[in-house]
Amino acid sequence: MTSDFEPRIISFLCTWCTYTAADTAGISRMRYPPNADIIRVMCSGSVDPTYVLRPLLDGVDGVLIGGCHPGDCHYQSGNYKARRRIVALKMILDSVGLDDERVWLRWISGAEAGRYAETVTQMTEALKEKGLNPMRQKWAV
């Protein structure tokens, strides 16, 4: 894979924690790769597995779900629901031969702007290593 490959990431960020962290990262003028597009959701627990599958099948290189730290969910237990769903989803991805490493679930609180920037950087790097999502080749976008 050529080194100038730029992966596309779609991220679903919980409005209370990780979305706030992304906001703060911006306010703090932090620098991180522009590869991740953000879709704001109320809670990581509201992320339907189809929201993850659809972009992957459409050829996006990675999906990031960001939620509050365990115990800190604004809705008490939404992040636990997300955790269960994503574990199940990854098992399905794995069983049908898709790379479950393309889906990241991370806990990033509103105060952790640096961690958000770091996570996006790491994910971009990791996906650069992996290269193009093979789905992109099967279904032309």
């Binding site: 109320m42 509201s46 604004h74 629901k81």
Partner: peptide
């Protein structure tokens, strides 16, 4: 409005308004 129910509804009967 957390949307946990919408994500978990098997027939997709629940929707979270504005999301």
């Amino acid at each position: 409005g957390c949307g946990a129910c919408a994500a978990g509804c098997p027939p997709g009967a629940i929707t979270a308004r504005h999301f």
